Computed example of a mutant assay.
Amino acid sequence: MYADLALIAVATEATIGYPDVVYRAIGHPVTWIGRLIAWCDKAWNSETLSDEERRWRGIYMLVLLLAVSVLSGLVITAVLEEFFHDIIVLLLAGVIGSAMLAQRSLHAHVAAVASALETDGIEGGRRAVSMIVGRDTRALDEAAVSRAAIESLAENFSDGVVAPLFWMAVAGLPGAIAYKAVNTADSMIGHKSSRHLAFGWASARFDDLVNLPASRLSALWFVLAAALSPGLSAPRAIEVLFRDAGHHRSPNAGWPEAAMAGALGIQLSGPRTYDGIEVAERWVGDGRSDLGAGDIRMALELYRAACGLQIAALVVVVVISLMF
């Protein structure tokens, strides 16, 4: 276990995030990974090939992506160990690993939706939420904008915070980088378009697999956070979780979304439109549907409590490991 590394990484990310000056100077690991995926997509995913051949090429791309990611993590760790003392290696690896997490930036992007609704009205809310969701936002009302923001918060808590931290704790820096590569591939080519249905199949299925433990863990953090948050309901979160999570379009996203909906006493998911096509998704939760900026703020409070619990759990694991 690499709980100490994960603790340093999440504490670093919560404190400073990914500084803009660093991003302007060298970009972000996700953008580097994205360039490799885009190159493979362009070079290997020819529309003249059969679906079977495109699926195999997608598998080859995933294997390449995992190999490059794991090797990168191993090389970084080896270089640090060559030049620095163990404690410095741990600290530097934790700072590097913090780039795999999106705890602080996720909060900022979702909070921006609430602020836009409060200051600029529905048009501002639509612009802000369009930055974090893939659905059409031009015709969304305030409730739909708020629902989209809260869904993004719940789902990305699992994908962008809990999952990379989990794999970092289990497999160190190589595990976190490999997870981030898989998740980026799923977001870029793991959808059911005619171009990517076959080529992105392996990435989408593998992403479902590696996100399975984190999705359940993120739901647990939301339930525990609801128990500690005035006005929220852990029993209702558990009820909605076990009733509605399995009905979600995603085998993983339904877990944090259901826990969030139950805790807040609201409805999430439901019908939405992608590229002009309406998709009739089932509702998650049976609470209020008339949502607004205040509900986004309440969801953010639950999110902060869940993040705090996750950090506290890592502290406990590290202390126990030091004792024994």
Rank of each mutant, 00 (worst) to 15 (best):
L5C: 04
V10T: 14
A11G: 03
Y23W: 12
P29L: 06
V30M: 01
D41W: 01
A43K: 13
S46W: 12
L49Y: 13
E53L: 11
W56K: 11
G58T: 10
L74A: 02
L74G: 13
L80Q: 07
L80M: 06
D86S: 15
D86P: 08
G94P: 13
V95T: 03
S98T: 02
A99R: 10
A99W: 11
V110W: 02
A111I: 14
D120E: 13
A139W: 12
A149M: 03
F157S: 00
S158D: 10
G160Q: 12
V162N: 00
P164V: 09
P164W: 14
W167F: 06
A169S: 08
A171G: 14
G175A: 07
A176D: 11
I177Y: 09
Y179T: 14
V182M: 02
A185R: 12
S194D: 15
F199T: 00
W201K: 00
A202L: 09
S203P: 01
A204Q: 02
D207H: 13
D207C: 04
N211D: 05
L212F: 13
L212K: 10
L212Q: 15
P213M: 06
P213H: 06
P213S: 03
L217Q: 09
A227P: 00
S229F: 10
A234L: 01
P235A: 06
L241Y: 12
R243A: 02
R249S: 06
S250G: 04
P251M: 08
G262S: 05
L264H: 03
G265K: 02
Q267K: 02
S269Y: 08
Y274Q: 05
A280F: 13
V284Y: 10
S289L: 15
G294F: 12
R297K: 02
A305C: 08
A306Q: 05
L309C: 01
A313K: 06
V315E: 11
I320T: 11
S321C: 15
L322S: 10
